[in-house]
Structures are given as C-alpha cells and as structure tokens.
C-alpha cells in the first residue's frame, strides 16, 4: 500500500509541469525514502531526476517499494483538475494497476478522486557518478529562464562560460549574435544573488531547446544552480523547499 498526502497540492502540479515536456512515459519509484523519478528524453540527451522526500509529505506510507509507470501527459490532465489550493493524496494498492489522485478543497466541501491506469514501462536507470564540478553558479531562476528564452530567439545553442568575473551566455544565429553576462552579485536579497564558486574556468555549449524545457521548473524555486565541468553534462538543479529537488542533466555539444 502506498499513500502520500500533500497539503500544498499545487507543488505536485508544478512538478509535473516541469517534467512532462521532456519525458512522455516514466516510472515513479515509491519507497520509504520518498517519491522519486529518473527518466531520459527519447533522444537520450537529457535526463530529469526528481525526489520528493517522504518527510515532506503530511502523511506518507509505503509498505513496500513500488514502481508506478505513468503517462505524464495523462497524469498532467488529471492533476490539472485539482485546484491550486487543494490537498492532493496519491494512493495505490500493492497490485499496482492504478493510482488514485484524491483532491480535497481547503474547506473540505469538495472531494474528487481520479484514477489513472498504470503502465509497464521499460526504463533505463542510469548510474550518475558523484562529481566535483569545476564551476557552480547560483542565480535567480527567473533570470535564467529569461536568458534562455531571449537567446533562443537568436540562436539554437548557448555557450556558457564561467569565470571568476561572472557567467556569460552567448549565442549565434542567422540574424546575428548575443552575449549576456551575469556578474557575481552578493549585495542584494538572497534570492536575487548570483554566486559563482569556481575551481577552474569552464566553457560548454548546449542546445537551448532543452534548457528552455528545464526552465518549466522555475515556479518550484526562486534560485537555480548550474554545475559544470569540462566535457561533462551540466546539472541544472531546482531545490523544492523542505521536500527535495528537480534536477536536470544535459549532455554538451562537443566539437569534432
């Protein structure tokens, strides 16, 4: 038996919005640790890893480890039927052919339940090695979203260069080129800060299409963290307060 109750149900709605453009079908892993997912996009260029820790739920029960395969577009259709103020409870029994989403309005005067059919999904669970990254950038998530969106109107790829002076985002396209530099800035409110931790300068190029998909997680966190090392996938992490994270990995473009 699996049961997880989330008073701030809108969080689950936002989580789903942050992954459904990247992945069509995915296995959610339920354990005593929490509600987790690891899935790659169909072209194996990016990966999303989600963790909602069990202690972040108001009630959490997982009698044995379960994998629940869901079509994320269908899951999203159901979660969109929950109000933003609703409490959401997920339930599944051990036979595991359906998951039930129960929505309770804040006044408890409306209770809905939606039953989603589960599916068998072959998934490749990748081992992601622990890495010391050469550069870590923390910046406002809205700023990162704005930069990715703006640059994608000029070019298809972005070159991200981190040095002690700042982080530079550059693109080139048919109409011209663009460079945006964010300098380290620790003088403002914590959520507005840009912080650079640097072992050594690093420059990598990525497809903007994927980074734009990642920024669907912006409503989940005021800050985003980028971690980069030479010729390694970038890690783009959004921390979900008191619950866990949505973390994306994107393989770089590599010169022949």
């Amino acid at each position: 038996m699996f049961e997880a109750r989330l008073v701030q149900g809108s969080l689950l709605k936002k989580v789903l919005e942050s992954i459904k453009d990247l992945v069509t079908d995915a296995n959610f892993d339920c354990s005593n640790n929490g509600f987790a997912l690891q899935a790659m996009d169909s072209s194996h260029v990016s990966l999303v890893a989600l963790l909602l820790r069990s202690d972040g739920f108001e009630h959490y029960r997982c009698d044995r480890n379960m994998t629940m395969g869901m079509n994320l577009s269908n899951m999203s259709k159901m979660l969109k039927c929950a109000g933003n103020e609703d409490i959401i409870t997920m339930k599944a029994d051990d036979t595991g052919d359906v998951v039930t989403f129960m929505f309770e309005s804040p006044d408890q005067d409306k209770i809905s339940d939606f039953e989603l059919k589960l599916m068998d999904i072959d998934s490749e669970h990748l081992g992601i090695p622990d890495t010391e990254y050469a550069a870590t950038v923390k910046m406002p998530s809205s700023e990162f979203m704005r930069i990715c969106r703006d640059l994608s109107s000029i070019g298809d790829t972005v070159t991200i260069s981190v040095s002690k002076d700042g982080v530079k985002f550059s693109t080139t396209g048919d109409i011209g080129q663009a460079n945006i530099t964010c300098r380290q800035n620790t003088s403002v409110d914590k959520e507005e800060q840009t912080i650079i931790e640097l072992q050594e300068p690093v420059t990598l190029t990525f497809a903007l299409r994927y980074l734009n998909s990642f920024t669907k997680a912006t409503p989940l966190a005021p800050t985003v963290q980028l971690q980069m090392s030479k010729e390694l996938p970038v890690v783009v992490q959004y921390l979900i307060a008191d619950m866990g994270y949505v973390r994306y990995y994107l393989a770089p473009k590599i010169e022949d």
Binding site: M40, H44, V45, S46, L47, E124, H125, L126, G127, I128, P129, T157, T205, A207, L232, P233, Y249, A251, P252, K253, I254, E255, D256
Partner: peptide, 14 residues
C-alpha cells in the same frame, strides 16, 4: 560544427 553528445556516453547504463 559541434555534435550533440549522448548522456549514455557519460552515465552508466543498467
């Protein structure tokens, strides 16, 4: 030009 790398060349498969 630059080639898109696959994640599978960085992370260990099942």
């Amino acid at each position: 030009g630059a080639e898109q790398a696959s994640l599978l060349s960085f992370f260990k498969g099942p």
